[in-house]
Design a protein around this nucleic acid. Structure first.
Lengths: 209, 209
DNA sequence: CGGTCCGTTGATAGAATTCAACGGTTGTGG
DNA sequence: CCACAACCGTTGAATTCTATCAACGGACCG
């Protein structure tokens, strides 16, 4: 396995077994495949909007000092676009093997709807970050992910603890403590590193009032 | 002074000297005046979008348990719209005497631009809340307000400490401590309850790296 | 002039982070 | 296939940060 040689600040992912600069695999005219940990760069001729066919994607904002904020996670059916601006620069990255289609032909109406939805999500996130305790944030995230994974009692988180933590604005140790605490209280059950079982959704929801 | 009589949870503002249910004053066809602490309800026939001519407005999300999150502040020239949805309900309120025009005739392009800007602001807010210490949040807010007030060295905050706190996700005591600390370090100077002086903007910005 | 509201400050309690150690899993190369 | 290394996640102890509770002074309003 050969590594990319990079000057200056070396992105930790560049040292992992997944060199992060690599071209996506083109399957059909508009279908692209990205692998785990790959930064999603669309062909320059495509509109910078895409729709996820399968897999999971994170939107990431890197800070000067190395911390990173995860803005949102997106799965099957979601529309995603890169927001770049003088003051914010947010990148999309695949967190597992992901298929997507470049969405040049999306209707204005559909786009508008998606933008509004993202706005609502952003507001909910602000509320989560500023008003919730660590237990509540973790519970809220698990409930949200369960819903998005199809509401089955047992599901598998698509992201690592580090991504989990970077999204809810906590440290991974605190995430771990909260998960253990919720498990001890019988509100969840953990299966391996990614598996989560929610025996009674109502009980967990009661945490959030 | 007669008070409104309200059953159940009494809004604290209902007990203040500004009863909060009241019609705005109509100046011209489309120009409305709202007073301090007044909830901004637009006439039902108007588009629920407006532009601020003068004054300051806060967007507020009230929680079931009485806490409130301030989503954003808006001043002269800003476009504002109320976002209502199954999962979020955000209201606009004047924090001082405010003139605005209902903006039925705003171009699509202008609206789109404003929406994008709000999206960017929301992301910056998420970053502030999840990655910044209390000192950094206060410094960041002061710098932002200074810029919006015209970048003069001395300016007057349009909002109370309570609103300040509800925006940056802290308690008013902590806000007060941070302001005192920044003043002792020579990074700011306080003038009365609302006045703020930033002797050297660069020094304060250094706090944020 | 007196009361209420707003902001500041101090002492204490509580929550989350930091630092450190450890076990388990995964991937790599022999 | 096995051994080893790197990474990921969990747990404990100590520290740091913020909230809470309480008291107080000043501004504003009637």
């Amino acid at each position: 396995m050969s590594y990319l040689s990079i000057q200056g600040n070396v992105d930790p992912r560049a040292r992992s077994s997944y060199p992060f600069l690599r071209a996506p695999v083109r399957h059909a005219n508009t279908t692209l495949r990205f692998e785990r940990e790959q930064v999603i760069c669309l062909p320059p001729d495509a509109a910078q909007v895409f729709k996820i066919i399968s897999g999971w994607v994170r939107l990431v904002q890197d800070l000067a000092d190395g911390r990173r904020q995860i803005v949102s996670f997106h799965g099957k059916g979601d529309f995603v676009w890169c927001m770049r601006n003088a003051s914010v620069s947010i990148c999309a990255e695949a967190i597992e093997e992901t298929l997507l289609i470049c969405a040049d032909g999306i209707s204005k109406e559909e786009m508008h709807q998606a933008a509004l939805q993202q706005m609502v999500e952003a507001q909910k996130h602000v509320l989560l970050l500023s008003q919730r305790s660590s237990d509540e944030r973790v519970a809220s995230f698990l409930l949200d992910m369960q819903r998005r994974m199809g509401s089955s009692r047992i599901f598998s988180l698509p992201m690592s603890r580090a991504d989990f933590a970077a999204f809810v604005g906590m440290k991974i140790e605190t995430i771990s403590r909260c998960l253990s605490s919720l498990q001890q209280r019988g509100l969840i059950r953990l299966h391996g590193l990614r598996g989560v079982e929610i025996p009674a959704r109502a009980a967990l929801e009661r945490l959030l009032q």
